[in-house]
Amino acid sequence: MPELPEVETTRQGIAPHCQGQTVTRVEVRNPNLRWPVPAELAAGMQQQPILAVERRAKYLLLSFPTGTAIVHLGMSGSLRVITDDTPAQTHDHVEVELSSGVRLRYNDPRRFGCWLWTETPESHPLLTSLGPEPLASEFDGNYLFHLSRHRKTPVKSFLMDNHVVVGVGNIYANESLFKAGIHPRRPAGRISRDRYQRLAEHVKETLAAAILQGGTTLKDFVNSDGKPGYFAQSLLVYGRGGQPCESCGTPLKEIRMNQRTTVYCPRCQR
């Protein structure tokens, strides 16, 4: 599933082609995505200039004078810039043509993503209850420490809660907890302020590195120019269950938490 770095990589890839361009055509080939694509989407976008391409959590936001298109890539979606006559494929469900002739093509084999339209994004239910962005200044050790007091939930689940902080998906939670030396099952309320500060710093560092390298290579993910990301080459624990820890040599343990693969070092993380 595309995580925050993949979505940010997509945003950075499409933004230069979109901002300032007018939408000349919107074609919805299959409206049956996670939620039905509303008729207001095409009506709101057509003949309108794209003012900005932004990201909130894992949502892409295409801003127009008339409203905002909310796009989620779902489990297997990708949004690509098409500059030639490549024909649409079976799973290309939404296409947006711009005044430059460039097209944005949304591909989603599992149809678990979404294209929605809102005139008031600040009050849309998908966006209103989200926590801070992990790369924002307000996300730090003090914030995590205060929010975690008296919580018995495992710290990995706490870190992946979008009400706590957005966009720290499974891969990056595994990596950040390893770097901070924190056991993923440790109760969130039993972690010190200093350890949370280290964790917040490693979350920022890990996500920033992944964005710089183009996201993590997942079998279903391609970014806006059709090329895979390369951050998977840098993973220290995720996908390495049973292999030696790169810090101490102890075999990494792989377990399931909330139906997600969790890998950690039983010696380095406590």
Rank of each mutant, 00 (worst) to 15 (best):
M1Q: 07
L4A: 03
L4I: 01
P5Q: 06
V7I: 10
T9Q: 10
Q12N: 14
G13V: 03
I14P: 10
H17R: 00
Q19R: 02
Q21W: 06
Q21M: 07
R29E: 11
R29A: 13
L33W: 02
L41T: 14
A42Q: 15
A42W: 11
M45T: 09
Q46W: 09
I50Y: 08
L51E: 13
R56P: 00
L60M: 09
L62P: 00
G67D: 01
T68H: 02
T68P: 10
V71F: 00
M75P: 04
S76P: 02
G77S: 06
S78F: 11
T83A: 12
D84Q: 10
Q89I: 07
H93M: 02
E97T: 15
L98D: 06
S99Q: 07
S100N: 09
G101T: 04
Y106V: 06
R110P: 08
R111V: 03
T120A: 07
T120Y: 00
P125A: 05
L126T: 09
T128K: 02
S129F: 00
L130P: 02
A136F: 00
A136W: 01
E138I: 03
G141E: 07
G141W: 07
H150W: 08
K152F: 05
V155W: 00
L159H: 04
H163K: 06
I171K: 13
E175V: 13
I182Q: 02
H183F: 12
P184D: 05
S192E: 11
S192W: 12
L207E: 06
Q213Y: 01
G214Q: 02
T216H: 10
L218R: 01
K219Q: 14
D220R: 13
F221L: 06
N223Q: 14
N223C: 15
D225M: 10
G226T: 05
Y230M: 11
Q233H: 12
Y238R: 11
Q243E: 15
C245V: 12
E246Q: 15
C248D: 10
P251A: 02
K253I: 12
R256Y: 12
M257S: 11
Q259K: 15
R260T: 15
T261W: 10
P266C: 09
P266D: 07
C268Y: 07
